[in-house]
Structure formats: C-alpha cells, structure tokens
C-alpha cells in the first residue's frame, strides 16, 4: 500500500540527448530514417558511398532524443543512436 505520494515537480523530468552513428558504406539510400525521424535530425546528403547510394547526414544533431526509431526502421543495420547525456528540463 502506498501511504504518500511524491509531490509534483520534486523530480524534474529529464530529456535524453542522443548521438547518431551512421555506417555510410552499408546504407542503400532508402530514406526511411530521414522521412520518419520525429525530430527531423537527418537529411539525404549529396555525397555517394562506394555502392553509389546517398547516405543520410545529420543536420540537426542537438534535437535527437535517443528514441531509436531510425535504428529500428533501418533495413540495412546502418544507423543507430546512443545516449549521450540526460538534461533536466527548464521549468
């Protein structure tokens, strides 16, 4: 049985900050990660890999919240993200 509750605002919710890693040589340029990133961190780049596809590039790296959707939706196992740090929300 729970006798007391933690008051609201006692523990500040923390936002995870993620870091994206891309293996450009494995990428086949399908664009799933670019389309479905909820924070629009990625964009197709103009450069080619050795297979001739355009891998994604990071344009807004600070916005990544380590949700891992790019890692799960990538069919080529070529992108993943790791937790860099957790910052407390301001107010």
């Amino acid at each position: 049985m729970r006798y007391w509750e933690v008051p609201f605002g006692k523990e500040k919710p923390k936002t995870p900050i993620g870091e994206i890693h891309i293996l450009k040589e494995r990428c086949k340029g399908c664009g799933f990660c670019v389309e479905y990133c909820p924070k629009d961190v990625l964009e197709m780049s103009d450069e080619f890999n050795s297979k001739g596809y355009h891998p994604p590039k990071i344009v807004n790296g600070e916005a990544c919240v380590n949700c891992g959707l790019c890692e799960t939706i990538c069919p080529e196992f070529s992108i993943w993200c790791t937790l860099k740090e957790e910052v407390a929300l301001e107010n």
Binding site: K28, G29, T72, C74
Partner: peptide, 17 residues
C-alpha cells in the same frame, strides 16, 4: 552482410524488429 534485399524493401525492417 550486406544483404541482398533491394533499397526500399521492408524485409530488413522486419528483421531489425
């Protein structure tokens, strides 16, 4: 790897899941 599936194929996504 790399696997034989075409770019835009969903099988790789299912394998990741």
């Amino acid at each position: 790897l790399p696997h034989i599936w075409c770019p835009g194929c969903g099988i790789g996504t299912a394998v990741t899941a």
